[in-house]
Design a protein around this nucleic acid. Structure first.
Lengths: 223, 223
DNA sequence: GCAAATATAATAGTATTACTATCAATATTG
DNA sequence: CAATATTGATAGTAATACTATTATATTTGC
């Protein structure tokens, strides 16, 4: 997987950016440092001015890559889910047993993320923290229907539907495969959040993982 | 239940507001109309200035009730979960069979909400739409740990823990009752959101309800 | 019923945000 | 090396998120 990923450019819908940040050093710096800054101060407090100061660049230069900070977050999310999709595809390729394949998939999307050294400018571990803390904000806006039409969430929906396919292989009779898949993916983000901030309403902690909870849940639901 | 609720004041943590909006006509108007305005334009576009214009009142008057719009949203959420807790408590009182009680509880927290005519100035149906679209924003801020310490989310956590109690009654061996309860409550909000905006990654629609999905899931997980 | 206290409205003002526009300086490329 | 594209610097605007002050109502307590 490593070799393949190192030669692979994660593709993100062109409508999300003004100029593709992967095509220049400044663009890459914007992506790299925005991840660190959003993690540090939170998306709500994040501004292009602050990012400009952090990277020693002008605010107006950042606007040449992204229309606004919302689009930047959508970009980071798309990148994350696309990267996650690759991990999932490679981890499940050549596995014939449907249950084993589904378990692998659930493990990939629910476990804690470590940095992928093949992507120079992106720290996936920190990006994962941002996704846990901020992902639903990309969806929960008044513009969601318009942005959905423009394909902003295609990669995310494709990832969910890959898991739906695995669920259907395990139990073709189960009538809620889509809801189960979306529950696993977005629910595990929430459980990670609770583990960090509201420990009294989750069982997940350093000893019992979110992955265990969802593996157990899925096994029981589909048997 | 109606008679009881009509005499009942929903209690919200005092630290959330500057002045209790329930104590004056202006306060009630702020709560009533903020629900309508947030639903209309979305929380991100909502400002106290716009609310002031809507209710024919001055911006500065609103600041005497709520420090900022985030606190107002936390107030509305607390109110909502408190109201939900009453519905849950009354719906489950005197039911002896644990499974039946849990099913009732799940139904209450996952089904679509209709207006409660006992609360003059609050339209619960619209408030439910706001909770679906905006609730996670009350948690997902950099200040979550501080606000949690101050008790901003107590009512919500108490509601989750009531459901945890019901789950434990049905199956005391199940090791993930807290994660299951939080998954049901926040997950059902997400399923309602998907039903409205990203229909391709949910099975819930006008014929198959979110409630059915969670009743089925819980039954299978706990048997 | 009136004085005192409280609540609300009106106005003004500040710092920050979220941009857009223009032009100069610097790199890149053909 | 000239043309082109990219970045930086500066300035400017409208909106946001407040705070402060003072005037005007309204409520309440005696």
């Amino acid at each position: 997987m490593n070799i393949i990923l190192s030669n692979l450019k994660i593709q993100v819908n062109e409508k999300i950016y003004v100029k593709d940040p992967e095509t220049s050093p400044l663009g890459k710096k914007i992506v790299e440092q925005s991840i660190l800054l959003i993690d540090e101060i939170g998306f709500d407090n994040f501004t292009f001015k602050k990012l400009g100061e952090k990277i020693g660049s002008n605010e107006s230069s950042i606007y040449r890559y992204f229309e606004n900070k919302h689009k930047l977050l959508v970009y980071l999310s798309s990148w994350y889910w696309s990267w996650m999709e690759y991990k999932l595809v490679f981890a499940t390729t050549n596995i014939l047993d449907p249950s084993e394949k589904l378990d692998k998939a659930i493990t990939i999307v629910t476990e804690k993320v470590t940095d992928d050294i093949n992507t120079e400018h992106i720290n996936e571990s920190i990006l994962n923290k941002i996704i846990i803390a901020e992902f639903t904000k990309t969806l929960q806006t008044k513009e969601v229907d318009q942005e959905n039409k423009e394909g902003f969430f295609l990669i995310y929906k494709r990832l969910i539907n890959r898991i739906v396919g695995f669920i259907n292989e395990v139990n073709p009779e189960y009538p809620f495969s889509k809801s189960l898949a979306s529950t696993i993916v977005v629910g595990s983000l929430h459980q990670h959040f609770l583990t960090e901030h509201l420990k009294t309403i989750t069982d997940c902690n350093e000893y019992v993982s979110t992955t265990q909870f969802y593996l157990n849940l899925t096994k029981n639901v589909l048997r």
